[in-house]
Amino acid sequence: MSAAPETREGTAPIGRRVRLFLRHNSLGLFFVTAFLLALSGQAVAGHAEFNNQLVADGLEPIGFGAYLTTSDFGVDVMENWQSEYLQFFLYIFGTVYLLQRGSPESKELGRAGIESDQDQMVGEHAADDSPRWAAATGWRTAVYSRSLGLVMGTIFLLSFLAQSVTGVAAYNEQQLRQLQAPVSWSAYLSSADFWSRTLQNWQSELLAVASMAVLAIYLRQRGSPESKPVGASHSATGVEG
């Protein structure tokens, strides 16, 4: 009986299938679209600012396409990406063991830790529609059961590395304009410029996570899974609306 809606959806007219796809994937599509618009806006504004600086230094401005390949644009993008993925990496692993009484962002107070195989539907406790690696044993289950945090951590490390590489290139370009000696990559990693760029992003991301976890104890957003039900007690923990 449950397969009937899928059959009707699969044989529906193309227009209806497109509308269903957009509705069922609207959250991801919205944020991907917003990301692309914000990135495009950053590129346009950054190009204008970069050319203003070139003119102020007595140099010729460059085209938009050339700006997109510069280290200045690369470091501005990467320093934001690495802070975002650090936030998710810490949040994913932190919420395994750390609790916040009254917050829907926390697990229930008695469930700290990785939980049992039965709770996590792993191995012999996997359901018929569970991912294949959830039903496997050994290293596949160990990897898959931590795959979200591992991927987020990997993206963070790669974007952190990319930030350092593009950052030293942008820094040395500025050094040469000012007729100063360039620095090595290792020296740049210990420089004030690198850590100023990095920490100004980390502090904002960590503050945002802390605000979400704590404010959701007392405030509500009707209909959002990130909020408790409007009438839930302030002390209710791990309850989502």
Score class of each variant (00 low, 15 high):
229 P>D: 01
215 L>W: 08
103 S>I: 04
83 S>K: 02
198 T>C: 00
34 A>V: 12
73 F>A: 05
198 T>Y: 03
123 G>L: 02
55 V>Q: 10
109 L>K: 04
213 A>F: 14
18 V>F: 11
19 R>V: 15
239 V>P: 08
37 L>A: 14
159 S>V: 03
5 P>E: 09
118 Q>A: 10
12 A>K: 01
75 V>P: 00
17 R>G: 04
216 A>R: 11
44 V>I: 11
123 G>M: 00
223 G>V: 05
101 R>K: 14
111 R>V: 07
124 E>A: 09
190 S>G: 15
59 L>K: 14
204 S>I: 03
61 P>A: 01
94 G>W: 07
232 A>R: 00
39 L>K: 13
78 M>E: 03
2 S>W: 15
158 L>H: 06
93 F>E: 11
53 Q>S: 13
29 L>S: 08
144 Y>W: 14
69 T>Q: 10
31 F>Y: 12
220 R>E: 01
104 P>D: 03
75 V>I: 10
140 R>Q: 14
198 T>K: 02
162 A>N: 09
54 L>S: 06
49 E>S: 14
83 S>Q: 00
6 E>V: 12
227 S>H: 02
115 E>P: 08
204 S>D: 07
35 F>E: 06
148 L>W: 13
46 G>L: 00
199 L>S: 00
1 M>Y: 15
240 E>M: 14
126 A>W: 05
13 P>A: 03
121 M>H: 15
173 E>K: 11
18 V>Q: 01
223 G>L: 03
241 G>A: 09
141 T>L: 13
212 M>P: 04
186 S>Q: 13
107 K>D: 14
168 V>R: 08
155 I>K: 02
201 N>L: 07
135 A>E: 06
203 Q>K: 00
94 G>P: 03
215 L>Y: 12
123 G>N: 06
227 S>D: 04
64 F>M: 06
223 G>K: 08
54 L>Y: 09
91 Y>A: 12
211 S>G: 15
164 S>W: 13
43 A>D: 05
16 R>V: 14
183 V>P: 07
2 S>I: 15
103 S>E: 10
19 R>D: 13
124 E>T: 07
23 R>P: 07
208 A>M: 10
151 V>S: 09
238 G>R: 09
119 D>S: 12
47 H>M: 01
179 L>M: 15
65 G>T: 04
124 E>G: 13
61 P>Q: 04
91 Y>S: 11
121 M>I: 02
133 W>R: 10
68 L>G: 02
90 L>R: 01
175 Q>T: 01
92 I>W: 10
26 S>N: 10
21 F>T: 08
222 R>F: 07
147 S>M: 14
147 S>W: 15
217 I>G: 08
35 F>R: 13
150 L>D: 03
141 T>S: 12
66 A>V: 00
96 V>H: 13
100 Q>W: 15
71 S>E: 01
163 Q>S: 13
80 N>A: 07
116 S>H: 02
196 S>A: 07
28 G>Y: 09
141 T>F: 02
128 D>F: 12
88 F>H: 09
55 V>L: 07
216 A>L: 05
241 G>T: 07
72 D>E: 12
44 V>P: 05
76 D>Q: 02
130 S>D: 07
158 L>D: 05
206 L>D: 01
98 L>V: 15
56 A>V: 05
24 H>C: 05
21 F>C: 06
110 G>C: 04
99 L>M: 13
158 L>M: 09
60 E>K: 10
10 G>F: 09
104 P>Q: 08
195 W>E: 00
